[in-house]
Amino acid sequence: MEARMKQERLYDEDVYTVHPEDYRALCERLAGEGYDFPRAISGIDMGYGLRVTLQLTRMKDLAKVTVRTDVPYDNPVVPSVTDLWPGVEWYEREAYDMLGLRFEGHPDLRRILLEDEWALHPLLKRYDTGGYPVPGWEPKPWPDPEPWAPPPPPEPEEAGEADEGGEAS
């Protein structure tokens, strides 16, 4: 898991970017670490794929953490975390509704804001505001290095500092 995880500090949050296969394992680890308050799950259309952003708070010491993972358009499947935090149930449904992200293991994954008959996932960038296809829209190539690739190993003289910073959990 560590090999496919990028960890950074953004403002006051720890941000983990992980491979979709490791997403569930990381969430379980965070749940074990006491992150109990789910703030939101956001789906973002990155142009090359769909990003799931899970934001958590630990009520005990108010530590904040963000978990990101990217999935391709043709197979937007992410494991659901509703059993860990029931409060994300509607957020996962909303992400499914708006972006077509499918959360595996969700107890009741169906549209929440739009009607069931709709075939449109309106927040995808391939649709414009009115829900019409954007002419000439093409998905971007998958980024290289991948989003969860850890940053390249630092210069030897700075290695010590980086290690200290990277130990935060």
Binding site: R39, A40, S42, I44, T53, G87, E89, W90
Partner: peptide, 27 residues
């Protein structure tokens, strides 16, 4: 009430995600 603003460097937000308090409460 939270908001996740994603910027791509242009003058329009790339993505604005609202974390609704009442949305969570209604669950």
């Amino acid at each position: 009430l939270g908001v996740l603003v994603v910027s791509d460097g242009t003058d329009k937000p790339y993505r604005v995600k609202h974390r609704g308090a009442a949305f969570s409460n209604l669950q």
